[in-house]
Write a protein that binds this DNA or RNA. Sequence first.
DNA 1: CTAGAATCGGAGTCGTGACTCCGATTCCCT
DNA 2: AGGGAATCGGAGTCACGACTCCGATTCTAG
Lengths: 188, 188
Amino acid sequence: MTADRPLRADARRNRAKVLEAAETVFATRGTGASTEEIAQAAGVGIGTVFRHFPTKEALLEAVFLSRLDRLAAQLRAAADQPDPGRAFREQIALAVDASPAKNAIADALAAAGVELDAVKAGVGTGVRDALDLLLRRAQSAGAVRADLDVPTVMALLIGASYGVEAAGDDRGRRALVINVLLDGMSAG
Amino acid sequence: MTADRPLRADARRNRAKVLEAAETVFATRGTGASTEEIAQAAGVGIGTVFRHFPTKEALLEAVFLSRLDRLAAQLRAAADQPDPGRAFREQIALAVDASPAKNAIADALAAAGVELDAVKAGVGTGVRDALDLLLRRAQSAGAVRADLDVPTVMALLIGASYGVEAAGDDRGRRALVINVLLDGMSAG
DNA sequence: CTAGAATCGGAGTCGTGACTCCGATTCCCT
DNA sequence: AGGGAATCGGAGTCACGACTCCGATTCTAG
């Protein structure tokens, strides 16, 4: 219930710098990276990091949500492509390829006891809705199994992300993993 | 190059107790569980834990390898079933259902900078070989896509483990995830 | 049974990293 | 420009957890 007065210009700028730095640092050094490391990467003092994100957990959550936001936007943008089946396939492949870092963050949050469902219920709704639209259209077009629902597709996406990660650097193997997934999801 | 003299009887017993305790504690509390917690669960002093496993990392590795060992044994046991396709399917489903804990351990090891490939090269070979046999037989029988190889199947297995985990407690949803995977892996 | 070696237990050390505090600095309204 | 409020920086605090050390205990060879 804080009366969200607008932040001072420099404060807003710093907040953004921290968030961005945190994203890259978490992605490269892993979620175990120290807050100090992030502060340095952002060119900011530790105190500043903690003022904007009172907890490391809060910082992780913010980074996670920002990623979900971008994903949702991307999914929405694909919703009006002409070929629903193709749109679905493309977005799945894109989402999977882009998500290795999200996984680690999600794990860290879960390990910290954060209710991921609650988090997702907030901004994650955007992802859910966008995915819902893509999925329905693809199913109506007969391109995707009818027995799949959004939560299951999300579970598959998460799994595929890890699978791709486990496939290592081999481009062909990564593609094969995604291919298997898409085949499994397709109708018939 | 230590001259591995056989351990004293009580020492061997304690080692086993610690390993077992570590496995359950890591599974329930996560890999972040403190060494003290494990010592307590094993009914043993911290010193004892560190004598047998000089590092927390070493302990994680030992637990991981013991799991891989069991998995390999299970896979080998399934290698002479009459229907190769069915054997493959069943084992995949079993392996996936049993592995959520392994994932977390593997992640922790990776985060600690352990070369997972090196680890797998040691005992993991058992898994690789057993899986290789199952896979070849299933492919020869025309039950599984010919373009899959063992590393890819392992990546898929890892991914599926996470996918199942993400599917939550819903029994049907978990089954659906595995079903999609198996469909994707099947021939034609 | 007994000596001596191997093992155990757990208090204490040490390093690390999250988080706090307050003087210094920067911003923005008039 | 000027002053007061909002922010910043980063040294310092504190808790926690991995790992060490050594007297006490338990095993086993003879």
